[in-house]
Design a binder for these strands. Structure first.
Lengths: 126, 126
DNA sequence: TTGACATATGCCGATATGGACATATATTTT
DNA sequence: AAAATATATGTCCATATCGGCATATGTCAA
């Protein structure tokens, strides 16, 4: 089977591994919150979240891969610390909508929008 | 098979369907950006994103289910409009990290953190 | 009514994901 | 060295997800 077939078949999903994705998982969000202020070892996080240690390690791995946490060896333990810089893009994207969630969708507003839409639709009609 | 067995087996993933998740998908983010300012019909979105219409409809369904867009029938078309209120929780969560991504990880900072960590570890030792 | 257009949905295939469990690896303690 | 502790990883299972394609549904025009 030629390589391009393989590539073609592979070209499906590719959701993985950016800050947006890392943060989509509730447990991972909780981990990040727990890491505010100070580093913590894996077991402590697992206990705090009431989840198993392997699961915790896997979430930490994802967070590590997208650069939201960093690890530091400390004897037997691995101390995970927050590196929030990766959250900045998320913030920047979301803040771009601030004016819209404050918007009051009153009738006039809607009316104007519909007019605009109508114009647009007519204009584009081919 | 007793019902609890079923429930037990079911209790696996549950990632689905909140704003965090909806926004984790790049195409869906692009859709939301396109909907800033004015409503758009599905086909227009599909064309703008260079993706198929069914795919667009499916993304829109997710966005609709989490309440980030609303639909309005307009003859043959369905006009999708932004409802950014659902993004507010995302913003609130992320903004809680603002002080940390500005943080400069200098040596003193680290030193203090490590001291705290050590104290904590010693204190918890059982 | 028929046909064109707009949209939603069902099905399939491939892959990603999350969790549980067992186990491998590394470090410290005895 | 052996045991205890801390963590990472591999395997298995069930499900979610994304994409393409075909098609169903609904609306408007001729």
């Amino acid at each position: 089977m030629p390589i391009w077939t393989y590539i073609f078949l592979m070209a499906r999903a590719a959701t993985t591994s950016d800050a947006f994705n890392a943060v989509a998982e509730p447990q991972r969000r909780r981990i990040l919150v727990l890491l505010k202020g100070r580093e913590r070892p894996v077991n402590e996080l697992a206990r705090a979240l009431r989840i198993t240690q392997p699961r915790t390690s896997k979430h930490l791995r994802v967070l590590r891969e997208v650069g939201l946490v960093r690890v530091r060896e400390a004897g037997q333990q691995r101390l995970y610390g927050l590196d929030a810089r990766g959250l900045q893009p998320v913030h920047e994207w979301v803040i771009g909508f601030e004016q819209y969630w404050n918007e009051n969708f009153d009738r006039l507003n809607e009316y104007v929008k519909r007019l605009q839409q109508k114009e647009h639709a007519d204009g584009k009609r081919r």
